[in-house]
């Protein structure tokens, strides 16, 4: 009897302790998510909304801007995430070498971009990649190019700038995950491999990479989510332009809600496309990285 009373009071206390967190989560997470799902079935401008059933989904399929935004977002994903993760892995491996001189300085330097202010770095990138910016001046004085590259005025180069800036910003962040995981790999495995005469590249490829698999999966999933939600850099550096070439789904949602005559319902529908994509891609990534046992 006393036992169950104690259990009961523990139960009540437990719930009481997490109640504030639960309430906040409910108000600021669960409610908006459900409300946006409801909104995605509404049509209309501004506050004048009415239930439209699947109208918004039909509109999606016929919207050339949505198709462009989706294509751009998937292009960024397909190109930027692999480049960034491979770079992060290589940096981590290089900086894990205990004989490397000044490695903590390099670690800090590579990690620093992801703690700098987004707006500040975007402004700097804008001016660096300007027509008369430092990048063009450098390439010109090295005689690598004959005339300045219109980085931000050309659809292709604008995409390159966006990929370069997100890679610059997030490579260090992913590198830290890999570094932390590498510290946990037992050094004796490498010693054994060395004694057996396994070359350095093979130690990296057949030992380090497989040992890091859970972390690589984790970084792939969070990078995928991050890139699918990409908003800041296109909004600050290129404004989605030139001519929608860097328009992402998130930026399109912003335009639909705040720049154009607001279609909040349709914007919510587009946001659920991101949710769906994140879900599908995460499942695929987990499936590909599952443990195969014979």
């Amino acid at each position: 009897m006393a036992q169950s009373q104690l259990a009961r009071s523990e139960q009540i206390n437990g719930w009481a302790f997490i109640l504030p967190a639960l309430a906040l989560l409910g108000i600021f997470m669960v409610y908006p998510i459900l409300w946006s799902l409801w909104m995605s079935f509404q049509t209309g401008r501004g506050m004048v909304m009415s239930f439209g059933g699947f109208t918004n989904i039909v509109r999606l399929t016929q919207d050339p801007v949505f198709i462009r935004a989706l294509t751009n977002t998937l292009t960024f994903l397909a190109i930027q995430v692999p480049i960034m993760l491979v770079l992060a892995l290589l940096f981590a491996n290089a900086l894990n070498d205990s004989k490397l001189w000044g490695r903590s300085w390099f670690r800090t330097a590579i990690f620093l971009p992801c703690v700098t202010s987004l707006v500040a770095y975007s402004v700097v990138f804008r001016s660096m990649f300007g027509a008369e910016g430092i990048i063009n001046q450098m390439l010109l004085s090295l005689h690598l190019i004959a005339s300045p590259i219109p980085w931000l005025a050309d659809p292709f180069w604008a995409k390159v700038v966006i990929v370069a800036s997100i890679t610059w910003r997030w490579t260090g962040y992913n590198m830290i995950f890999y570094l932390a995981a590498m510290q946990n790999i037992d050094r004796s495995i490498y010693e054994a491999a060395k004694i057996d005469g396994v070359p350095a590249w093979a130690r990296f490829w057949y030992l380090t990479v497989p040992m890091l698999k859970p972390v690589i999966l984790f970084t792939t999933v969070i990078s995928t989510i991050g890139t699918l939600q990409l908003f800041d850099e296109p909004n600050l550096i290129t404004l989605g332009g030139p001519s929608d070439s860097t328009l992402t789904l998130s930026l399109y949602i912003y335009n639909l809600s705040f720049k154009f005559m607001p279609s909040f319902g349709y914007a919510a529908t587009v946001s659920y496309v991101i949710v769906l994509l994140v879900g599908i891609l995460s499942v695929i990534q987990f499936f590909l990285a599952r443990d195969r046992r014979a």
Binding site: V65, S243, K259, M261
Partner: peptide, 16 residues
């Protein structure tokens, strides 16, 4: 009218 931004975006998309 009220849709100048929408029309502008459509024009910009075709400028290249």
């Amino acid at each position: 009218g009220i849709f100048t931004n929408e029309a502008d975006a459509a024009v910009i998309a075709q400028l290249p």
